[in-house]
Each structure stands twice: as C-alpha cells, then as structure tokens.
Amino acid sequence: LRLEVKLGQGCFGEVWMGTWNGTTRVAIKTLKPGTMSPEAFLQEAQVMKKLRHEKLVQLYAVVSEEPIYIVTEYMSKGSLLDFLKGETGKYLRLPQLVDMAAQIASGMAYVERMNYVHRDLRAANILVGENLVCKVADFGLARLIEDNEYTARQGAKFPIKWTAPEAALYGRFTIKSDVWSFGILLTELTTKGRVPYPGMVNREVLDQVERGYRMPCPPECPESLHDLMCQCWRKEPEERPTFEYLQAFL
C-alpha cells in the first residue's frame, strides 16, 4: 500500500490517493489515533465489506491497528460538496442534479434492503467520479466515533443540521433518520452546496425544527421536489418515504 497524494483533511483524519497491490488506484482514509476503537472498527469493517453495490464506494481493505487505515475505490472528482461548490458546479442544471440524487437514493435503497443504517448521509460523504457518477461513502463509521465533541451530539463536530430530530435528541438512528438526511442533501444539491438552514446555528436549528420549522423551497427548485424534501422531514419517522420510493420518484 503506497500513500501518494494527500487529498484532504477532516476533523478525524486525512484522505490520500495511493496504490494498492502495486496496480490498483485507491483512496486511503487514515484516522487520528483515539477516534475509534480498533476492535469496534474491525467489526464494522466486516459488515462494510459485505455491502456491495454500484452506488456505494467499495471497501477494499482495512488496517485495524492505530493509525487505522481504510482502503476504498478511488473517485476522481472528490466529495459531492466540493464538486457542487467548484468550477463544474456552476454548469450543473436541475436534470443532472436530480440524476445525482437518484443515484444516491439507489445506493441508499440497497442499504435499506440490507437493514443497515448510514448515520451520516450528506454531500460531504458522497463521492463523485467521471460522468457525474455518484456513490455513497463512509457508511456506518459515524457510530464508532468516540470523540466527546461528537458523541455528545451537541458538540461542534456533530452534523446536527443533517440529523433527524429523534436521532439528534435521543440517539434513535434508523434508515428513517437517513431519509431525513437525504432530504437535507437534496437542498445541498439544489443550492450547489450551500450550508443548510443558512444564518442559523446548530442550537437554533434543533429548537426550530422541533417546533415544526422546515426549510423553504430553494430558488429555481420545482415545488414537486420541495414537496419530496418535506416528506423526508415528516416528524414521525414511519411517515417518511422509503429510499425505494425516493429512487422511483426521482
């Protein structure tokens, strides 16, 4: 395994491009020591290896001592969030954005069929390849993070704006909380990567959403798509659509 080009840095580690087995181009995620327990990670990795779908980033291998390494397929255009905010983002029109959403829903419909939960679905965790191919990455890892700023769910590192209220408040993460996050991801797509709930801080978002506030229809977004977002944001988790439905609708 060779680490060649550093692609990015996040709160919990770095991402590199490299070569595996001398020939395969891969992405390598390294986790800061202390982010998660190697034992817990190894268990999760076994499950992650079983998830194989064309719209999920394929896991190739893991190094399960500290520092933990995760070796996955390489996606040339990086994260969907950076892609939307970058040069190419300007030229993306609604049909392409909807197609990308459908690809993500397709990957998540598979996660749904496998009775698995992602827990951290957002544009930053979707990767883009050639020809606007989108794949879901980092599934299941969020559960293992041991950082206090994260586990408190009120901490600075927790993605509260993407998280369903029952998950943020009571830790009830299910495929239905993933559906909520998918609704937020749809706003990221239609606004080219704007942060959700602009002008609001995490605490406010939690309070307002509890009181029934939902983001309005983004500019140039059809009402039918906003309606779909609002279905994803129904207060009762069981009233939210399935990913199978979302995939078919898109």
Rank of each mutant, 00 (worst) to 15 (best):
Ile68Asn: 07
Pro237Leu: 12
Phe158Ala: 02
Phe41Glu: 02
Ile175Gly: 15
Gly171Glu: 00
Leu141Glu: 02
Tyr91Asp: 12
Pro241Gly: 10
Leu51Cys: 06
Glu210Gln: 08
Ala27Glu: 01
Leu31Pro: 15
Leu185Val: 08
Met108Thr: 13
Arg52Ala: 14
Met229Arg: 01
Val111Pro: 01
Val136Glu: 00
Glu188Pro: 00
Val117His: 02
Arg52Trp: 13
Ile126Arg: 01
Gly86Asp: 05
Ala109Gly: 14
Val201Cys: 13
Leu51Met: 06
Asp99His: 14
Leu56Cys: 14
Phe83Val: 14
Val179Arg: 08
Gly86Val: 08
Gly129Asp: 14
Pro241Arg: 07
Tyr213Phe: 09
Tyr213Asp: 04
Met200Val: 05
Cys232Ala: 08
Ile68Gln: 02
Gln58Gly: 09
Pro198Gln: 07
Gly10Ala: 00
Leu189Asn: 03
Leu186Ile: 10
Arg234Trp: 12
Gly155Glu: 05
Arg203His: 13
Ser37Ala: 08
Gly86Phe: 12
Leu51Gln: 03
Asp227Val: 12
Thr35Trp: 10
Tyr60Cys: 11
Thr151Phe: 13
Leu144His: 11
Ser64Ala: 04
Tyr116His: 05
Asp120Phe: 00
Phe83Met: 08
Arg2Lys: 10
Val57Asn: 14
Gln208Met: 14
Arg240Cys: 01
Met17Asp: 14
Glu223Phe: 14
Ala124Cys: 07
Leu51Glu: 02
Leu225Ala: 10
Tyr116Ile: 15
Tyr213Glu: 05
Ala124Pro: 04
Tyr170Phe: 08
Asn148Pro: 02
Arg93Asp: 05
Leu189Ser: 08
Glu146Pro: 10
Leu121Lys: 01
Gln46Phe: 08
Cys232His: 05
Glu14Gly: 03
Tyr116Leu: 06
Met200Tyr: 09
Met36Thr: 03
Ser79Asn: 15
Met114Val: 05
Gln46Gly: 12
Ala101Ser: 12
Ala168Thr: 05
Gly140Met: 00
Asp120Ser: 00
Leu189Glu: 06
Glu54Tyr: 12
Val47Phe: 03
Glu239Lys: 13
Lys32Ile: 15
Arg113Ala: 12
Val26Ser: 12
Glu65Leu: 14
Gln208His: 10
Val57Ser: 12
Ala152Lys: 03
Glu73Leu: 05
Thr163Asn: 02
Tyr170Thr: 08
Arg25Ala: 09
Tyr150Leu: 02
Val62Arg: 06
Pro38Trp: 14
Leu92Pro: 07
Gln231Lys: 12
Leu7Gly: 15
Ile160Tyr: 11
Ala27Leu: 01
Ile184Gln: 03
Met48Ala: 03
Glu4Ser: 15
Pro218Lys: 04
Arg93Tyr: 10
Val15Ser: 03
Lys77Cys: 10
Glu149Ile: 13
Glu149Lys: 05
Phe243Lys: 03
Cys134Glu: 00
Leu81Gly: 11
Ala45Thr: 03
Val117Trp: 00
Arg234Asp: 14
Gln154Tyr: 11
Glu44Lys: 01
Leu80Gly: 13
Arg172Lys: 08
Gly86Ser: 11
Leu141Gln: 02
Thr19Gln: 13
Trp180Met: 02
Tyr213Asn: 05
Asn202Asp: 00
Gly171Arg: 08
Val195Ser: 14
His118Leu: 01
Leu94Glu: 04
Ile104Asp: 00
Ala102Asp: 12
Gly212Val: 02
Gly22Pro: 15
Pro216Ser: 09
Val201Trp: 09
Gln46Thr: 09
Arg172Asn: 04
Gly10Met: 01
Gly18Met: 09
Met215Pro: 08
Val63Leu: 07
